[in-house]
Design a binder for these strands. Structure first.
Lengths: 179, 179
DNA sequence: AGATATCTATCTATCGATAGGTAGTTTTTG
DNA sequence: CAAAAACTACCTATCGATAGATAGATATCT
């Protein structure tokens, strides 16, 4: 069935979490936003850890789908990397918000264990995809280069948030290495 | 005088804030940690906004002193950039924690105004220093390159936190551009 | 004595979480 | 087929814990 309520809970929670991290979203605030009671959210997500974990999982899944689409587009390396960067750029530009898992990573130490794990899985998926792309295009040290690119994306988003201007993302981004 | 208590409040607050951001440190927790009562902290820092702002200011000041020291070392570009990266690397390795202002930047939207301003000043100081270093060494587009380098540092820290391993910082870091 | 620093005690607001209830739908069973 | 049971998706009400903040008393130090 994939209840509409659950989707709205997730959407609201993601919105809040991407603004200020794990401690910046609450059952009450979500409830108020979508017009139900906070107790009802506990019906769908027993604990906050549970909700945040689901949040990270769905976020990762959504990203993975985009990654798959880029792969299937069969563009050249430069094109695929550009499309990849756009994923982060538009996540920033459209929502004016940080990457959910980027924020979670920054506050890793205070996250419940399941959320930590889900967050790490996001980063692993990114690195795996990038590494595969690079190595199939004959780039040496593909794995390390993948880590660099991912750091570049997250760092660029963070700087853009610091100055509240998505232009900084474009400035901070660097895809010239493989030209 | 520069009260010892104030320093201990700041140290404890920084420790907590660098673990989980603005909402991850509290007057009560700081008080417990340094052995006083939370009301006593309000005597030194009237509000949480005030404390967090002071936190960011001192953090920036400390960083600026290091930057000055690097400048005065009069090493070549490559050496100074390496020393610069070490600032972030050791902040990560020694404390096992994220950059305070990096974390604040990520959650910019939920920060009180003064904290936002203080956070932005950290980034501006970094970019100014980097840009000066690059342009005096004949690098073109020094300002944009400075933004890239800063994003690289913050991104590398974030990735390292994601995997709870400082090795990822070294992997994510890229100073090869100006070789 | 007066300034500085810290205390006790308390307030209001909010947090995640739980207990128990209910209307409506679906499934099971005699 | 219809009654009984169970389930879904919410609700109200409340819990203990914690948040930042304040007033006023007390201690310490010059």
């Amino acid at each position: 069935m994939s209840s509409d309520t659950i989707d709205r809970i997730i959407a609201s929670a993601e919105n809040q979490a991407r603004s200020g991290g794990y401690n910046a979203f609450s059952f009450r605030e979500i409830a108020k936003e979508i017009g139900i009671k906070s107790a009802s959210i506990h019906y769908h997500f027993p604990t906050k850890e549970n909700l945040a974990t689901e949040l990270a999982k769905r976020y990762t899944e959504k990203f993975n789908q985009y990654l798959l689409a880029i792969t299937e587009s069969r563009g050249n390396l430069q094109q695929q990397l550009s499309d990849y960067a756009d994923l982060f750029y538009f996540a920033l530009k459209n929502d004016q918000k940080m990457c959910l898992c980027g924020l979670f990573a920054a506050e890793m130490d205070v996250l419940p264990e399941d959320v930590q794990t889900a967050t790490r899985l996001f980063f692993e998926a990114q690195i795996t995809w990038l590494s595969t792309l690079l190595s199939t295009n004959g780039i040496a040290s593909a794995d390390t280069e993948a880590v660099k690119l991912l750091a570049n994306m997250e760092g660029a988003m963070l700087i853009a948030k610091a100055f509240d201007s998505e232009d900084y993302f474009k400035r901070a981004m660097d895809l010239t290495v493989y030209k």
